[in-house]
Amino acid sequence: MRPAFLRLLLLALLLAQPALAVSNPADMLPDAAQEERARALGREIRCMVCQNQSIEDSEVSLARDLRLIVRERITAGDSDGQIRAFLHARYGDFVLLKPPFAWSTAVLWATPVVALLGGLFFIMLARRRSAAAPAMPPPLTEEERRRLDAIDDTKDTTRA
């Protein structure tokens, strides 16, 4: 029974399709090419409420409004660049999932690189410290123990 269940589960996962936020047929464009263009463009636009999702993946009403704006602009004949520029002018850099590189966004672009380099630096520092740590000395031989005992015996007699 268990292998059959695992096969069924695997088949279900392989056949699963991502849920699209545009579920209302009235929101979709009648032309399939324009609708695909709107969806592709919507995957580049950030949901202002969810912040980690595109407007195509979000169910929030603001995301729906932005999807409708994108579709209206496509119907009006705007190019993808014009639509991005329109939304950018209205909402700023944050509306784009891939904001342009500028001095105002330099920290955003540099943070992953700085974090990676900092992590590598600390790993190298830790490895150097562990390599430079003194190793345990080898155990004393019988000859060394006899000499040490002899030294201890002489110290005890001088103190008395």
Rank of each mutant, 00 (worst) to 15 (best):
T141R: 05
R2Y: 11
I123P: 00
L140Y: 13
R159L: 15
R64C: 14
C50T: 07
L97M: 13
M1L: 10
V49H: 03
A160I: 10
R73N: 14
A63D: 07
R73F: 13
T157L: 10
E36P: 00
F101T: 01
R46K: 05
L62N: 13
A16D: 12
M136P: 00
L10K: 09
S104V: 09
G119S: 14
D78E: 11
R84P: 00
A160E: 15
T158I: 12
H88A: 13
E144R: 04
F86M: 01
V113R: 04
L6Y: 12
V60T: 09
C50R: 00
S104R: 00
E36I: 05
A106F: 03
E59V: 06
R37G: 07
A4N: 02
S54C: 12
S130I: 10
R127Q: 09
L10S: 14
W103E: 00
E44L: 15
P134L: 04
S130Y: 04
N24I: 06
L68S: 14
A85V: 02
R67P: 00
D57Y: 03
I69M: 10
A26V: 07
D149E: 15
L11W: 11
L125P: 00
D80N: 13
E144T: 03
D93S: 10
P112W: 03
A132S: 11
A126K: 08
R67E: 06
R145E: 15
S23N: 13
D93Q: 05
L14N: 09
S61V: 13
R37T: 11
S104E: 13
S54M: 10
K155L: 15
D78P: 01
D65W: 05
L68T: 15
A150E: 14
R37P: 05
D152L: 15
F5H: 06
R146M: 10
S130K: 05
P137Y: 09
P100R: 07
K98L: 15
M28K: 14
G118P: 08
E59H: 06
Q17P: 01
F121G: 12
S104W: 01
E72A: 07
R67W: 03
V49P: 01
D156G: 06
W103V: 00
R147I: 11
N52Y: 08
R145S: 13
R64H: 14
I123H: 02
A126V: 09
L9S: 11
Q82T: 09
L108D: 07
L148S: 11
A102C: 07
P99E: 06
P112Y: 04
A33M: 06
E56Q: 04
Y91Q: 00
